[in-house]
Design a protein around this nucleic acid. Sequence first.
DNA 1: CTACATGCAAATCCTTTGCATCCAC
DNA 2: GTGGATGCAAAGGATTTGCATGTAG
Lengths: 146, 146
Amino acid sequence: MSNHSDLVQHLRARGHRLTPQRRMVLEVLQGSDHHLNAETIARSIARRYPNIAVDPATIYRTLKWLRDADLVSETSLGQNHMVYALISHHRHHHLVCDQCQMVVEVDPQILEPVRNEIERRYDFTPRLDHVAIFGLCNRCRAERAE
Amino acid sequence: MSNHSDLVQHLRARGHRLTPQRRMVLEVLQGSDHHLNAETIARSIARRYPNIAVDPATIYRTLKWLRDADLVSETSLGQNHMVYALISHHRHHHLVCDQCQMVVEVDPQILEPVRNEIERRYDFTPRLDHVAIFGLCNRCRAERAE
DNA sequence: CTACATGCAAATCCTTTGCATCCAC
DNA sequence: GTGGATGCAAAGGATTTGCATGTAG
């Protein structure tokens, strides 16, 4: 389920109302393969439809609605805002630099051994879909070494 | 370096000024082995010293100062606030159940392979001192299966 | 003494909410 | 037609900042 009409159908089938605003937010999320915050989504819509402005409150309400429908992930990358992405997109984790806030996407495979260990040793099912790992990037590490 | 006077010495040696407020924040952080947010720290101080109130702005400034001195970690656990903890050599990770909030402590060794991979493949130094992994515990998983 | 830390209040940023109006179904 | 969605403005919570005052060194 990755294209627009599939998603629309899925939502309709669950009795959700499909407004132009909701379609536009979905469209932006589908057009991006990385995480977006509410403001970025609003700007994307404004750029694509220069004569339309969707209210921030509506963006936020739409995102919560999509999150509650399990279609969108809501993640904190340690910045002062949440970021959102369609769940149907490939899993990926993030390295976030404590100092310069740079974000690097990480091969999801890297956490598979951890998943297995946690399931085996602790009988716990970890939700490792979007994990943020904080630390220092190479540039900032070098900078500090001085 | 885990007791109060050691920390104080360390900071003094670096030319930092040690005020009563800073000592109190340090004291609270040393008295807790889990992550605290600014408000909780303020309340702890108020409880311990009923006639003193440290301004929130001072708490935040102190925490940034300790973070910049690499004595305290500043982490986002996906809530709307940051949490802080002394960077100690006693690492511990936690499994947190999304449903029943149960918390289990996890062998820190479990993340060592991840640390190595991240350092090797991404030239990034992860700060894996207090990682929270969310998911479902065995009880809640069984409950959902019904 | 002096540079730096504090308290206080106001400002900021992201996000949520109340309410009248609007529109998808 | 009607319940749910929108826009607007105002409220909210966490955090930051400006500035006068206080104090650690």
